[in-house]
């Protein structure tokens, strides 16, 4: 594989894995959202996100990286390229037993991640790799609705009294502990940018900062002044133990017999 091909695959894994793992976290919320209407809405958005992951895995499949299902379900944690933010648990407990899930964290994480995703897709619109240009436009139409949805939640929680405001602000701070991890293209960053696949990470970060600060400022909220260096660089395959749990769960059935038709 030459440098350009390697760079393209690395970027596609970042795109696919970010969406795949976050959609998995979303699917754990199913049936547990604050109200029934939200359950329906959140689930529909998680399906969009999972659908995007599938499109990226299928692009990798076309490039000969393996079948989409094998890529999603049989790789080892250290082969995953998602940022650590998306693998963080929804709270304590298991989705079937005592799930102590934090809705403020769900709102803050999904909103701030999807603002990043918007900026990243916007940058992909001028990618040197045509399939990424086409796919980005399609994904942005769906993402626009997601952003409106999370903007509304941000407004309601920020304006919902002291407790809810404090919870949301604390969740934003917690999300920002991991936010730097999004703005890394990993060990192949130079090759990714040199191939013209996407604008460099610092440009994305500047655009995200502007968007996220505006969105929060409208509701009297703010980002922290500085973001710590990431505890693990997910783009380099460094992950928390939680990712191993996620992968074991999501591939439990498939691993019974990956050669079988399911």
């Amino acid at each position: 594989m030459n440098t350009d091909q390697k760079a393209l695959q690395e970027l596609l894994f970042q795109l696919a894995d970010d969406d795949f793992i976050l959609a998995y976290r979303g699917s754990e919320w199913l049936g547990l959202a604050p109200h029934i209407e939200e359950d329906v809405a959140f689930s529909s958005m998680s399906q969009d996100t999972m659908g995007h992951a599938v499109m990226f895995y299928e692009m990798l499949e076309e490039l000969g990286a393996g079948t989409a299902d094998d890529l999603a379900q049989l790789r080892k944690p250290q082969d995953f390229r998602n940022a650590v933010l998306v693998e963080r648990p929804n709270g304590t407990g298991h989705y079937m037993e005592q799930p102590n899930y934090d809705w403020a964290y769900a709102v803050a994480r999904t909103y701030l991640y999807e603002l990043f995703k918007w900026v990243r897709l916007e940058a992909l619109m001028s990618s040197s790799y045509q399939p990424l240009v086409q796919i980005s436009r399609k994904m942005m139409t769906e993402l626009r609705y997601h952003l409106m949805h999370w903007q509304t939640w941000t407004k309601h929680l920020a304006g919902g009294g002291q407790e809810s405001r404090d919870r949301l602000q604390a969740a934003i701070a917690q999300v920002c502990q991991d936010i730097e991890g999004l703005f890394s293209f990993g060990p192949h960053a130079d090759a990714i940018v040199a191939a013209g696949l996407i604008a460099d990470a610092s440009t994305l970060k500047a655009r995200w900062l502007e968007k996220a600060s505006d969105a929060l400022a409208k509701n009297g909220l703010a980002l922290p002044d500085a973001f710590p260096a990431p505890s693990h660089d997910g783009r380099a395959g460094e992950h928390t133990e939680q990712l191993a749990d996620v992968l074991n769960t999501l591939s439990e059935v498939y691993r019974l017999d990956p050669a079988a038709a399911w």
Binding site: S27, L30, D39, V40, Q47, L250, V253
Partner: peptide, 22 residues
């Protein structure tokens, strides 16, 4: 079984199904 559905296609389908039930 939603988080554990065996293939990407099944994962999407069962998410949509359970969402319908809600």
């Amino acid at each position: 079984w939603v988080p554990k559905a065996p293939t990407l296609r099944r994962k999407l389908a069962i998410m949509a199904k359970v969402q319908d039930e809600m």
